[in-house]
Design a protein around this nucleic acid. Structure first.
Lengths: 226, 226
DNA sequence: TCGCCTCCTTGATCCATGTCAAGGCGCCGC
DNA sequence: GCGGCGCCTTGACATGGATCAAGGAGGCGA
């Protein structure tokens, strides 16, 4: 039968599509690790020892010094981080701080590098996952450079919703402070912008947001194409 | 002997490290294409037919609508663009406009996808190149979110220089308008910021920039870590 | 229950950058 | 050489978002 960790691998996009043989090989070198809210999984500048994939809970990738933090993106269950640093064996450019308690699947970077050399399925899958991340980052850069704070926030909220039409309720993936930085604005500005969005049917209470009509909110964003 | 296009492949980082067998297979489906300044190689929203690698001359990747353009990055000889879109078979998120006359090596996206499935060397190499791009984008996002216009410009100029110490002269990789958008500012602001940098030893004349001391300029940037 | 701490909100003010408008300057065709 | 056209620069002004400063509100330990 399968290795006992294979079921965990299947929950992770990076691994889920791989053939059984590859899965087993990876499962043999993988390990599970619990982490708790606000803790750092690793810090900018360190050498990569592992690829982190999240089974439960999530983290936020932040770069830059304290007081000048730049939140890159939030990651949650099924997603993986730091493939690039691990593949190249270069120091992390960012730190990862947990946004909740959770559990991550760790695969040693050296092993993964080796699998990439030997196993087409693994290498191809890495290329695909990296490609998807790349597109996410490009979208973010385009957005920062062309849209104002309100539009960016609206777009972010829409992307966090699990639907595309009608109304939706969502939970912010981290503290408001972190969300603000992810959007490239300050917490104060987020607070005010959120208030402005009320006239577009966005109600917020704590970290839960209710969008009355995703279509109406989209109209705000798409008024400028991009 | 080798396929006649193999020497061209060797000039491209994506292909240069590949074993001879892989190179030949790629060379057989690759083609050369001339392009001229200001022309579009492809536009946002189109379906990817090729991977473009530059042998000579360069392009700029831009996203967003006219008047709200976001320049993502400049690319020159030896570099490749649009691997991600081609690998995933999804529409381009950006357009490519030539910043000079030049010549590109085109590999059909469908063929490359197939090589990635079959050939570990190709797949692994794609993963590595994507990883490097990823790191470049992360740096850019960190920078936009944490540094002001002057620091970003200074850093950009330093990265364009071929040295790390002493003085340097460089040619901007595109029109000032494009450089401005790459930095997330307007042409007017670039003009003014460039003037401010004179007191840090930066002289500009047309599209050529002279930096008196890279160390001095670095000091401006690293005053805030990140 | 109280007090403190952290996170968030609100208001007042400031400043970097955007916007609008007017030239300058080089390049090219005639 | 002249006119026209892009590209860039400059100046005056507008504004979005940052900053500074002051509370509120919930959580948590004693």
């Amino acid at each position: 039968m399968d290795h006992p960790r294979v079921p965990f691998l299947k929950k992770v996009a990076l691994y889920s599509g791989l053939p059984a043989a590859s899965l087993t090989r990876i499962a043999e070198v993988a390990g599970l690790q619990r982490f708790s809210n606000h803790g750092f999984l690793f810090r900018e500048g360190e050498e990569p020892d592992f690829i982190y994939s999240f089974i439960e809970g999530g983290i936020v990738l932040v770069g830059g010094a304290d007081g000048h933090e730049a939140v890159i993106e939030f990651f949650g269950p099924g997603e993986s981080v730091l493939l690039p640093a691990a593949i190249l064996g270069l120091p992390y450019l960012v730190s990862a701080r947990a946004t909740s308690d959770g559990q991550a699947l760790l695969v040693p970077a050296s092993k993964l590098r080796q699998f990439i050399e030997d196993d087409v399925a693994v290498a191809a899958q890495c290329a695909r996952v990296l490609s998807r991340h790349w597109r996410g980052l490009i979208s973010q850069i385009k957005e920062i450079k062309t849209h104002g704070a309100a539009e960016r926030l609206a777009h972010f909220l829409i992307s966090q919703a699990d639907k595309v039409t009608g109304s939706a309720t969502l939970i912010l993936p981290g503290m408001k402070k972190e969300v603000a930085t992810r959007l490239g604005i300050k917490p104060e500005t987020l607070s005010r912008t959120l208030k402005k969005l009320r006239e577009y049917g966005v109600e917020s209470e704590g970290d839960s947001i209710r969008i009355a009509s995703l279509e109406r909110l989209s109209a705000l964003v798409t008024s400028i194409p991009g």
